[in-house]
Design a protein around this nucleic acid. Structure first.
Lengths: 329, 329
DNA sequence: TTGTATGCGTTATCAA
DNA sequence: TTGATAACGCATACAA
């Protein structure tokens, strides 16, 4: 700015005014200053700029796994809301690693972003609340926390599990499998719990649990092998998977075995990622309102940043079942 | 820092030393300062910090479409390289919109990130070179540019097209279709060009082009309808798709029509995204070295940032064919 | 309408 | 080993 001022033969303050309150400065002076900025290729330094005001106009989303389309869809929802309020969104990928999550979090706090959204490995982790205590609003996305000093937005996974099983019961299935694990993941637990409730309400028999070590396509394939290996009259006629990746793996294994979906095995996934609908046999899935999830979270974090009377909320959204060929035939 | 200094009864400089050169300060003084920082919940202000040094230790990747798994894989490669050099990576999503791309770019320049990686809508756009001219290193990812004042890393799409067609010819196919479009996309053009070269080298007949309006699953489905509608003896026995999304759409349409892959139609995709291998009929695809693409780009941008003797390079990587069930049966 | 002076939070230089 | 002080680039209050 100093150079610009010199070249335009005005003072520093005038350059600043051209930048921030152009109406205050005489059109011809402004012209001169703007010309000087162009000649010098001047770029305002945001860091210095917000040194005074304290904060930059940006949000950040620390996501658990950027390669999982579910989270990129959530991010799209966040971005929509952010853009409407003229915020920029920076995305960081913790890649399921606690050290990276912590690293990004502290970096972002040091950067003085306006607010942080995060899908954490462990929603009860101490360092999350610490961020908020240090003055950067933080909202937990797609997870719930017992900590009431934090906002969170999540989806009712128990209900989702019940919806899935009810749909299968409606379609006439009696022997139903649940594919998912490990149960240390709260969402897996909840979805299974929901499934059990659905069966109990219908006074049907219990569910066959095919435990997996992760919620990946690969694990879905392996679960498929085990499932298809079960003796004929014990073999379930339908499977409810803890997420779509598992369901896609299961589908692959079933097709590779020469069996058909849904005739030989009906499949319900969870999340309704884009590739569920795009699968060779379009997958029935429990859809989480991903966009709304992101949007609400962004709105909460912006409110917390701007509104002194902000009240922390734990928002729970409702899932919805999307029926497709994999259960309808 | 002032408050910390007061509480610890030391000077500002000492607090700074504890932060930056702890070995210079007496263990017991250090203790006292650290205690004070903890008590006050002190967080160092990055903005102010880099006001002196001029730059922050972070890179940014402006991606074309965060929902496309291809780009998240590239991002993972970037992040790997960045992390090794202790850089943080911030991702921004232009979502195929020129205004957002420009917005993020200028924001990042104002933020004084160390370097920017970008997969642009238009690799020849003036504002890309402008960023570099203003002093922020910028590398173009997965696109080539004629501008030699910029580094770029891309993959040889012509070769990729040739690989795909050669594979199909090897498998005995004579009537081959190309599914893709619009030709305004350089990559689509190159892949088709490569396919034609492969056919020409084998003195085979020309390719049947099924033009699409975008490279999406939906367009792939529609292309499938048209393809399957062709008269029996004119109908191609194999299709090469400009990317995997098209291929997945085509696969879906073929399966829905009760035909089989590869018996009735062999399919080759492009990109080898994760969901290609995870499809019900695992998809043969041309794999771009996504990780390496990201990694090389990150290395280039960091070199440009740190090395005054940096020489701009246009790196071209080689693709590779991954054969799976959709052509092997 | 324009200029001057001060402060934002930190690092670095130099003196003590 | 520690302290005092001048930058860094900009915004703002106030004076001219």
């Amino acid at each position: 700015m100093k150079d610009v001022a010199a070249l335009a033969r005005v003072s520093l303050g005038t350059v600043s005014n051209v930048l921030n309150r152009p109406e205050r400065v005489l059109p011809e002076t402004r012209q001169r200053v703007e010309q000087a900025m162009a000649d010098l290729g001047f770029v305002r330094n945001e860091a210095a700029r917000h040194l005074r005001s304290g904060r930059s106009r940006s949000l950040a989303y620390v996501m658990l796994d950027a390669a999982n389309p579910f989270f990129t869809d959530v991010a799209a929802g966040i971005e929509e809301a952010a853009e409407e309020s003229l915020f920029s969104l920076y995305m960081c990928n913790s890649g399921n690693r606690a050290d990276r999550e912590a690293g990004y979090l502290s970096h972002l706090v040091e950067q003085r972003v306006q607010g942080i959204l995060v899908t954490p490995l462990d929603p009860e982790a101490e360092h999350l609340a610490a961020v908020a205590r240090r003055g950067t609003p933080l909202v937990i996305v797609d997870r719930t926390t017992r900590d009431e000093s934090l906002c969170s937005v999540a989806v009712d996974d128990v209900l989702g599990g019940t919806l899935a099983v009810e749909h299968l019961l409606d379609r006439g299935h009696q022997r139903i499998a649940f594919v998912g694990g490990p149960e240390s993941i709260g969402q897996v637990r909840d979805r299974l719990e929901g499934a059990r409730r659905g069966l109990a309400a219908a006074e049907a028999s219990d569910i066959t649990v095919i435990a997996t070590e992760a919620t990946t396509v690969r694990e879905g394939r392996m679960a498929g092998e085990r499932l298809l290996g079960l003796a004929g009259r014990k073999r379930p006629t339908a499977a409810f998977c803890a997420n779509d990746l598992l369901a896609l793996g299961l589908l692959q294994q079933v097709v590779a075995s020469g069996l058909r979906v849904p005739d030989d095995l009906a499949i319900v996934g969870y999340d309704d990622i884009y590739f569920a609908g795009a699968a060779a046999v379009p997958l029935t899935s429990v859809r989480q309102p991903r966009h709304v999830l992101g949007r609400r979270a962004a709105e909460l974090v912006m409110d917390e940043a701007a509104n002194p009377d902000h009240i922390h909320q734990q928002v729970v959204l409702l899932p919805e079942l999307v029926a497709r060929t994999s259960t309808l035939g």
